[in-house]
Design a protein around this nucleic acid. Structure first.
Lengths: 198, 198, 198, 198
DNA sequence: AATGAATGAGTATTCATTCAT
DNA sequence: TATGAATGAATACTCATTCAT
């Protein structure tokens, strides 16, 4: 579009040496998945996003599946780290409830794009057994984080609750009451021994 | 090669008058989505599954998107009906806890295929605003069912919990303790006042 | 290249109805194989030769292999017919020797292109078992034709001799003596019972 | 990921001084041609077979055509040597008939792989004039060997017969009678004068 | 009203070759 | 001298959609 008076390097400066290319392609792929979904991710789109020629795609990756798997794996690891970091300063049960509430309301460093990619991973894992290890590792890590503060059963409940509430929040169009979320979560983190609580 | 003068073509009986064809195509589409995902659904696959000629696809539907939207809508309505039916006989709070536990553990008339299609719908709705009305209607109906037994906030919590637990169940490879699920759900359905009372 | 004052049908007249297309593609494929070899045969080349759009290739044939197999099969059948016709008027042993000599010297209705395609078929059959049936049928028919005039062993010898002499003729750059060929063949068609001949 | 300070890279021993590399690549190329055909031979396959880096290919050869030509030339020379050696001990006419029969029945030190490569060469020569010199030299040498025992015309006949019988043997799936082959060849090697005498 | 042949834009992928290191 | 990353042209193939019949 912009006029280029000199004839030579038409649109892309030659970049024969580019050590981080592989990594940049993976990053670009995550972005493309966020925007177009796994199904809409093509070599062409990723190549354009990473500003590399098309041939680089299959040079650095066995194929599109390989690239997608690597991108989703990196994303999952990144999400797990965010999750962990989000709970790093939790001390009391009330801290935990607050942290979970924040997480559901989008204050955990993960935006809607991140969740969209995560759901893409879930769906892909549903059909591709190779991706199951990625989702399982992630789920195990999430539970592990929660189990620092509550027992295993409660951790599973809270983890499921987070999953469902976030999904409904992402899919809903209207606003959601933070107070209500707080109350819902508070019930889930009560000590297992019901009798003791009453 | 040799002419066959007798009778009709063997493999596909001529279907001169076929009033349910449209509906049959939609059913076939749901099946194809379950098996191949929305991304893997093509006119050809659906036509083969419904045993109709390829030309029928764009004759009865404006395009693939149209067909997919109709199939996902039918599926969502069907799931909502199952959901409603599953809670039809609930009377007490304990009934409710049992019903939700059953639902999470796959005894609600919905199998993994159904959930797979549902997740396909979620993901599609994430990118296609036209499908949001479908998911919203479904969510509203689910909450409505639960609100017959508990207050709105609790309903939202239970609904989210169901969503998350089912998703984790579908994605997990190991078995899940039913007793644990029961306990988790029991906490979520306690009347709101109790939580506030402490 | 030629100026077209009217805006509409740019370069290819629309040809929506074209009943013999399949057949025309096969013919074109044979021509392309003759010119570029099996290895050099591409969908694009054949489509251009048949004057059909690229999409027609995989609409009418499962894939390139399918097309190649069909083209080679048609060629083999055609060659067998030529072979048979070439010996139709043979009555005496001398007729036979003359006919074979003619065949080796290129007067059997088959030109170098035909032989080139045949060798392509041989080589393809060497690697693709599915094509073996084609070459075997052809060989059986050739022998059958010769066995009308001589015993089976002699037929095998003459058939082999034809094969080798034609191949060397096709590969050689210099001229070959017809008298010599005649003499070589005459020996091969002598009656099997050596004692009787002397 | 973790740095390995000790020793050398494990999988490919560093080959600092490697004077036979060129030759090894040519050998590897012959093997790849035998297995995948000329059309299926790629730089990558040959490099892997020779266990040399991809860059070696175009470093040692001007291009793939160059490599193929050299490989086919080496193969032809090798075949000619085998041919010559196979007839080294022939003294009488009966020796010759026996030797040729052995050759057709696969006892000449050349297996089916060798013939496959030879046919690849023939076909390549059909389209590439540069390879014609290779096939012509080979043919001239074969005839020369036979002309040690019989006159030129007979040599041409026997050479053609060998070519054809071997090709049919390679392409056929059933067994072939050795006695029959012997008889066929015996007729071809009779002195020319006999044929003329009748 | 219904269909199957036709089409072209788009897809993943391969690979000979180039070139900076 | 030797190499492995890089590249772009070319490949087979898929498929939603169109349209003459």
């Amino acid at each position: 579009m912009t006029a280029e008076p000199t004839a030579e390097p038409l649109d892309r400066p030659v970049r024969r040496h580019d050590p981080d290319r592989r990594q940049r392609i993976v990053e670009a792929a995550i972005g493309v998945i966020a925007e177009h979904g796994v199904a809409g991710t093509t070599h062409r789109l990723v190549a354009a996003a990473a500003d590399v020629p098309l041939g680089s795609m299959t040079y650095h990756f066995t194929g599109l599946d390989d690239l997608l798997a690597q991108a989703l794996t990196v994303h999952a690891e990144r999400m797990a780290v965010k999750y962990q970091a989000h709970f790093a300063h939790v001390r009391t049960t009330e801290d935990l409830v607050e942290a979970v509430t924040d997480l559901v309301h989008g204050h955990a460093g993960a935006d809607e794009r991140d969740w969209a990619v995560s759901y893409e991973l879930y769906l892909a894992a549903l059909r591709d057994p190779a991706l199951r290890t990625v989702t399982e590792t992630w789920m195990r890590r999430s539970r592990g984080v929660l189990e620092q503060f509550v027992d295993a059963a409660t951790a599973r409940g809270v983890d499921g609750l987070i999953e469902g509430l976030v999904m409904h929040e992402v899919l809903s169009t209207g606003p959601v009451s933070r107070t209500e979320t707080h109350e819902i979560i508070a019930r889930a983190v009560r000590p297992t021994t019901e009798g003791a609580a009453q």
